[in-house]
Design a protein around this nucleic acid. Structure first.
Lengths: 373, 373
DNA sequence: CTGAAAGCGCTTACAG
DNA sequence: CTGAAAGCGCTTACAG
């Protein structure tokens, strides 16, 4: 239907008067607004895109008309003209559902009101067609940008490809692995150090350590942070007390079985995430060990599972929702003409002390607590 | 850049020969393919949309060209012309992260290769602007369809609005609350009945029941299924042994405290989901009750938490991934010209017996097991 | 079976 | 500061 060239002489003074000219049930388009405002659609376009080259009076009149008629520019049409969509992708291969959902919510919170939407893309990072799959996804949807979750976020080949495709990205990570504009990160090393200090404060000297899976940067960071904290107080982590893990409950069970069969038995275990810590609980119970009297346990993440273990798990809180929101904002800052807001600091995870840690039983009476730690 | 009107007389015989004519780095468009195939873009369009009105020889030649050049039609442009996007929304206000993530994965699996993508939309169903928020989301993105998760899926005002907007939808639900085309459902009543039978088979007669939250259809279904099964064997559920729950761990704790303070104490508790069952474990432990010797527990969902409780939870498995895949397929079946595949049956959840159920201690010796149940 | 024209709702140069 | 023309990559009538 060709746009009726109606009485351009009439200049609507109020929204109500003009409303009759849009067929009910049809969403108004840029043409409707232009016609009602007696301007070209290019001028309406300028208002939409906040161009400074519009007379204030005109801008205001158009803005009001848009509001009155509930006009919202069509992202599809805008995207086609811009050669870019208003979609943000979230790419991940992460075993932790709680983390994924909370991050999604955080990102959505961060883009609220911006007109952007979130398209999720779980994937298999070890699949042979991983890169081409992501490439197709990004190209087909002409994504404005993507949020990358660990460990996919640590893949530099991937980010190089995204750059080549002209797709913005922000990595969610455990260490500073990119410049501030492309990174939302927690300082895992600091968080783990806090956990180590807590255990040493309680008097533990034989501490077991369950690592994250190879291929996760957090594995390295968490171990490093822990060992550094130990060595700062002259302690060290013997190889016999370090075990592999996979950030899953089952791997926590397996690791705990190994660690708790060592002699002498460790008096405390740090698990690089909560899921694995839950596995340690199961093995401890099975071996008749009481937590924390016979064994102290510390986890990492502070996912809901930590509060529902018994006794409640002492763990390091990873600021998931904040990371999501921040990632979204960084992406939005990449819109042309956007003034970049102050870059967020690298967030510091902090220890949440609950009931799974206590001084070691056998030694609690003969070991001196370090003063003022 | 205007499309160069090049030598239409030359008719490319092979893709290789033609390849040189598309500038490298630029994705081919329908115009490129048309030019290379020496046909109008309308004909290419017909091939894309699988119109029968294309000569087989022509169709084949064009299809090959598309493949050679890695041509994929632009969903944005197609959407603009179709007045509809190739996006599917997932709308939910559900506390269970595991369920949400698995359903997302299931839907994505179901649409794989179709060119559709999934846009997630967590929301607050009790917010005053709930409906208008969803309406804006659907209209702005011109969603092809949406998958509705419980309890949002049970809102008929919502589905009426979607129909009015011309947006397809599929509900994920716990009972038959719509016609087969719009519904992917588990028969919760049957699943719960199985749980009840299992407990009765073991000899339990005093069974506590923790309900789901008001506003969830599953609350009603699960209770009904349970009571029907009991009454079929002449048992009944006394009001004093029924408690409210909210599908959260904390509500499970509160409910268990109530139920376990009744005298005589119930010998078994059915919790309407796994999260609440986890809460029952905590209270039981705190009261010094050993599971299943002093108390049998049955959950519902079979989420990962059930396997990591100790002892492992007997629960009713809800077929989450299957529901997601099926929902996606139903949506795709609504594409014009699509022949509807056989509608899925309503899925039946089934009992997974683990270690949290046993005959009641005090009575196991004097109660006769019902024969052949 | 195939195509030229017009359109989907926006934006980018380019004028003025 | 404002607009007419052309274009983004596709499809829908409408012809033939």
């Amino acid at each position: 239907m060709p746009a009726r060239k109606t009485k351009r002489s009439e200049r609507p003074e109020t929204g109500d008067e003009a409303a009759g000219r849009i067929e009910p049930g049809r969403r108004p388009t840029i043409n409707d607004i232009a016609r009602l405002a007696n301007v070209s659609k290019k001028t309406v376009s300028r208002v939409i895109n906040e161009s400074p080259f519009v007379q204030e009076e005109t801008r205001k009149r158009i803005a009001e008309l848009m509001k009155t008629h509930g006009y919202e520019p069509d992202p599809q049409a805008r995207g086609l003209a811009f050669r870019r969509s208003f979609l943000i992708g979230m790419i991940y291969d992460n075993p932790n559902a709680q983390m994924v959902v909370k991050l999604q919510e955080g990102v959505l919170e961060g883009v609220r009101g911006s007109g952007f939407e979130l398209v999720v893309h779980p994937c298999d990072r070890s699949a042979r067609n991983f890169l081409s799959d992501v490439r197709g996804f990004v190209q087909r949807q002409k994504l404005f940008g993507v949020v990358l979750l660990p460990p996919v976020s640590e893949n530099d080949t991937l980010t190089a490809m995204l750059t080549e495709l002209g797709c913005h990205y922000v990595r969610v990570a455990s260490a500073v692995i990119d410049d501030s504009a492309h990174l939302v990160s927690a300082n895992d090393r600091l968080g783990t150090a806090e956990a180590a200090n807590h255990l040493m404060d309680l008097g533990h000297t034989r501490i077991g350590f369950i690592e994250g899976p190879p291929g996760f940067r957090s594995r390295k960071e968490r171990r490093l942070g822990f060992e550094e904290a130990l060595s700062r107080r002259g302690q060290k982590l013997p190889e016999s007390l370090v075990t592999d893990g996979a950030y899953t409950y089952e791997s926590g069970v397996a690791a705990a079985e190994t660690l708790l069969s060592r002699t002498p038995r460790p008096t405390a275990i740090f698990a690089a995430n909560d899921e694995m810590a839950a596995g340690v609980y199961a093995v401890a119970r099975q071996k008749g060990l009481t937590i924390p009297r016979d064994l102290s346990i510390v986890g990492f993440d502070d996912t809901p599972v930590s509060a529902r273990l018994f006794p409640a798990l002492t763990t390091v809180r990873w600021p998931i929702p904040e990371m999501g929101r921040s990632a979204a904002r960084k992406l939005l800052d990449m819109r042309p003409g956007e003034r970049v807001s102050a870059p967020d600091e690298v967030l510091t995870p902090y220890l949440v002390v609950r009931d799974s840690t206590a001084p070691p039983k056998a030694r609690s009476s003969c070991v001196r607590r370090p003063a003022g730690a």
